[in-house]
Nucleic acid binder design. Structure first.
Lengths: 518, 518
DNA sequence: CATCACACGTGACAC
DNA sequence: TGTGTCACGTGTGAT
């Protein structure tokens, strides 16, 4: 698997494309590991192909692409145990996740947003020494997927990263940096014999490479086998640190900064390259930035130790700070994105515009709510005027656990001749549509003599994610000849001897509806 | 007027308090001028008194206070010609603005928010050499206000700031800085005879003063008369610049930075003091920052001119950048504040929390709106049915002579994804019962794919002694796989061949009902 | 060449 | 002791 990381860009792209087609992935993402002190995965390459037809809740496809791009920009610190990063950290050659399992392990909300928007159902993470390969598809997990995928990739030996002991001398370490910096002195020991195959270092080298235009060292494609890599990483880290604190005579023509020594900050974490557009530019930009950051502070002048900072060693301690700050910024930007996504579209994407639009959108919503409630109250009052008795109260009834819920209350004033009833029926079920439900009840009513339908209102709503159908029928019960002696009900409130037996009617309705369920 | 700026804190507060009571102001705000390069007004002191009874749209009073505080934190660059700053720039001793005139000139949205929230109707700005005094009241402008106010303040001679000629030697200038830095050498010419009465310098001095704990120089209350001050300001600016480029031997015990020279960036703009709480702390913090910024870069080592930056003279060009960047940040933060102010209170004030809360608040509002509109329509229909006074009421229900009447209107907000329609069917016929009618329509709907019934309401009534059945169905029309390209369409936005054709649907319903009649 | 908007690294401060 | 949040100055790219 690691060999993927060593391919040239063109071959890699072709391979990813091929892989994607083979497994019908929606997207594919190659995460390369950037070792300590960054210790994170960053995007190396990838593809996203929008589905031509998405069944879930619509929305534009370009949003998913935006989210994908943003996702690719994210850093994923392996120590967090999130995905991506989890497979790499735990040496899992194959890790398959269903949609349900993802939220627990996802690195960011944005990531989840992307999965959701793209309709991803299954994600596969394949760890290797160089990083991770992430495949996502909209289909449900399939039984033979793992085997197929495992067969697809060359069965290279995946060495378990043993927990590194930090004793590696910096002798072999400097070389990798001295390489990346292209200095002349210190061309040490085993440079060729132990090439930096680790993805991270390759990534680092790519940066330096682009910057320095020294393609020679990188261009050659080693056909790998990775030595013990942890030492490699550690070495590289140490190398950087070492050079940073020494007075190197590196010099770099491309930049215009007057000859200066290195900067005290080692690993401003790698670049993110976007596969599609802007990839090169972005990469170059980040590479330049990376390198420039290296040379920013000058520690070189040994005699001038009166520096600005308290200690001129802003090593590891500061580093956490810097990456966590970066994390924070990314979180904020993610939030900005998701916020902007639910604003009325088409406005500027400017940060302050987003905020302003948000405020005015909120206030417009608020006023809308206010207007509506106000109007609502007026209507309600008006209604209760004309149509006294509160019949208008919502179809709620008691929130019982029963699936069927039937209530019958008399609404006509006791003085009145005609007797009006409100029949409330609630049905919680996803199995039947509202219209099925209503038709059923109507069918029953039609059979009933003496009972005329005056009005009906109904709606469905989601309660705890299952639909609840509510139905209120106003019935006019005629005082027809039926004359069924039937004695009523529980309470004292005697409804006087009706030919219309409320309870049995109620029960009948209940049964009619319940039958439909069984 | 300038004398206000020279009062001690206690006297000043008392004076403001008194003034406020006298003119029944809601708030009063003392803006002190910080000269070039900042060239802006910043808050020196002020009061805000909430009205016990606010007639405008309720809301908590504390919101207005929050906005006031935020407003006080703002910087107001005089060159922008906004308020505050306008009166100062144009030497207006009295500038009265009605509410209508304010939006054009207000500096920030936050400011407007405050005015609105506090119910401010009239604002008066009084310029003087030291800055501006801002009075706001909730009453409408009164005819004699200007005279009263002018009488209230001591008629001190207000010198017009002549456009400064930049020739002032830096001799007299260094003193103010050397003063603020508390250095010992260079105690120059006219220090006592020409005390730094300019508000800005006093503000500057306050900073340095707090920082250096040398109260002696400031504590004394001069009873003024202001010399030509422009030279003063300019001098101060030049002084800073001069010191910055020279190798001063200033040293400062309180800070722990090893003795270093000055930084190349002169004017990181003053502090903002809040009168109420946190004032001291914030002020101190800013003061420290101000001073530290002065000493950041060391230009002192003359022999070491190999600096980091391209040119070690980040002078005026960069400076604009710095302040505009600062403006930008402030704008963002203002937006954050006003955004947070209209979120449900009590959550974290954390930036990312604000964003998250905003998103969920928006979606909650949205759902609320949806629920309300739905309920609203139900009520409305209900009302128009039961309460069928002769009205040519809203339901199109044109009292047509037709026996069947079908209407279809879209009710979902245009932003929403799902499309909701209200289908209204009226049937005047004595031949069929309501339930027959309803069942008929339902049967038709059931056949329709893409169309789901959300809610239904219906009734019958007698019109001219024949029954009229009314039926309102809310339908959710699904966006079947069609995947309409959602480029936001300011253009012709043709309703384009939907699988759901409103007109034909309507006609189909009409026919279904009519069939039943024949 | 300006202006604007953004991201970055950094010091300070609060738990 | 870190961990997280913030504002600042700065570099850079777009417009």
């Amino acid at each position: 698997m690691d060999s993927i990381f060593l391919l040239g860009e063109a071959e890699r792209a072709a391979f990813l494309q091929h892989t994607m087609q083979t497994f019908r992935c929606s997207y594919i993402c190659l995460w390369s590991y950037l070792p300590n002190p960054s210790n994170c995965l960053l995007y190396l390459d990838g593809l996203y192909k929008e589905e031509s037809s998405q069944q879930p809740s619509s929305s534009s496809g370009s949003l998913a692409r935006m989210l994908f791009n943003a996702y690719c920009e994210s850093l994923n610190y392996v120590d967090l145990g999130r995905i991506p990063g989890f497979a790499f950290k735990n040496n899992l050659r194959y890790l398959e996740m269903k949609l349900d399992d993802i939220p627990r392990l996802a690195s960011s909300e944005l990531q989840m947003q992307f999965y959701k928007e793209a309709g991803i159902k299954t994600v596969v993470f394949m760890g290797c020494s160089s990083g991770e390969l992430e495949l996502g598809m909209t289909s449900e997990p399939q039984a033979n997927l793992e085997m197929e995928i495992q067969n697809w990739f060359p069965i290279d030996h995946y060495l378990s990263k043993q927990t590194a002991n930090q004793n590696t001398s910096s002798s072999s370490s400097l070389r990798s940096l001295s390489l990346s910096v292209n200095s002349v002195e210190q061309s040490p020991s085993n440079f060729i014999t132990e090439p930096p195959t680790k993805a991270a270092s390759s990534s680092l080298l790519e940066e330096a490479n682009i910057l320095l235009r020294s393609d020679a060292l990188i261009g050659r494609s080693w056909n790998v086998q990775f030595p013990n890599i942890e030492s490699e990483n550690d070495a590289l880290t140490k190398a950087i640190l070492a050079v940073l604190t020494s007075s190197s005579t590196s010099q770099q023509a491309a930049q215009n900064m007057p000859q200066s020594a290195f900067r005290s900050y080692p690993g401003p974490v790698g670049p993110r390259l976007l596969s599609t557009h802007q990839s090169k530019k972005n990469m170059f930009k980040r590479a330049v930035m990376f390198y420039r950051n290296l040379n920013m502070h000058n520690v070189g002048r040994a005699h001038d130790q009166s520096r600005i900072d308290i200690g001129n060693r802003p090593t590891t301690a500061q580093l956490h700070h810097v990456i966590s700050e970066r994390r924070r910024r990314e979180k904020i930007n993610e939030s900005f994105l998701v916020l902007r996504s639910l604003l009325p579209p088409g406005s500027k994407k400017d940060k302050v515009s987003v905020l302003s639009n948000t405020t005015e959108f909120i206030s417009s919503l608020r006023s809308q709510v206010e207007r509506l409630t106000q109007r609502n109250q007026i209507l309600q009052a008006q209604l209760s005027m004309t149509n006294e008795s509160e019949a208008g109260d919502h179809l709620e009834a008691s929130p019982s656990t029963e699936r069927v819920n039937v209530g019958l209350t008399r609404v006509s004033p006791s003085t009145s001749e005609t007797r009006l009833f409100d029949l409330r029926v609630n049905l919680r079920s996803g199995e039947f549509s509202l219209s099925d439900f209503v038709i059923r009840v109507f069918g029953f009513l039609k059979q009933q003599r003496n009972v005329n339908l005056v009005s009906v209102q109904s709606n469905s709503r989601m309660v705890e994610s299952i639909p609840v159908h509510g139905l209120v029928l106003r019935l006019k019960v005629e005082d027809g000849g039926g004359r069924r002696r039937r004695l009523h009900p529980p309470q004292s409130h005697i409804v006087k001897g009706d030919e219309f037996d409320e309870l049995s009617f109620q029960e009948a309705v209940r049964r009619v509806v319940a039958d439909q369920l069984s």
